[in-house]
């Protein structure tokens, strides 16, 4: 019962490496290195990387920018609550507000164009989850996170919250249109 007894050899560190173990350690190490190189590789050659661009700001400042955008680019309103649907020009800054318990406003984007989408929470943590694309990003209060996004296919998408944010967390969902 050796694993629960002191090693039989007092100088156990000089015991030669077993062939099975040696082979496996080398293979496993190579595989770990490959997994490491995949991340920088994707930064250079892949198209899906999370932006490093983020700014500290306050809810008031962020909300004002969002309101300015909504005032300029609203095309219609939806639902009983008259949530504005905003169609900002390609390449522009698009502000999405996360708060208890809604996403605001509704965005309408064009396929094949890219947009600088800003994400920030007004209160607690939220989770931006775009379905059915299944892109998931953490949304913090006080951190304006800027992603350059290029929708590929036209359709009606949903944004749901996937970070628990209190009792009505499961009601926090919105739409995103791609034309």
């Amino acid at each position: 019962m050796s694993a629960i007894l002191p090693p039989e050899d007092r100088v156990w560190w000089k015991q030669p490496l077993d062939r099975v173990e040696g082979t496996w350690v080398v293979i496993a190490l190579i595989w770990c290195l490959i997994m490491f190189f995949m991340m920088p590789y994707w930064h250079v050659f892949g198209k899906q990387n999370l932006a490093n661009e983020a700014y500290r700001t306050t809810p008031e400042v962020y909300m004002k920018k969002a309101q300015d955008m909504v005032d300029k680019f609203t095309v219609r309103t939806e639902t009983d609550q008259k949530i504005p649907v905003v169609a900002p020009p390609a390449g522009s800054d698009v502000y999405l507000v996360a708060r208890l318990w809604s996403w605001w406003p509704i965005l309408e984007l064009e396929a094949g164009k890219s947009y600088r989408i800003h994400l920030m929470s007004m209160d607690w943590l939220h989770g931006f989850s775009l379905q059915p694309e299944n892109i998931n990003i953490q949304v913090h209060p006080g951190y304006d996170h800027v992603l350059t996004v290029q929708p590929t296919r036209a359709g009606t998408y949903s944004i749901i919250c996937n970070e628990y944010c209190g009792i009505n967390h499961h009601t926090m969902s919105s739409k995103l249109y791609v034309k």
Partner: peptide, 23 residues
């Protein structure tokens, strides 16, 4: 993998104005 969120009471979004329909 199909996008179902964790810590979520109702993925049917019943009564929600803008529900998402999971496959």
């Amino acid at each position: 993998t199909l996008g179902v969120p964790r810590r979520h009471w109702d993925i049917s979004f019943a009564g929600n104005a803008m529900p998402y329909e999971f496959p």
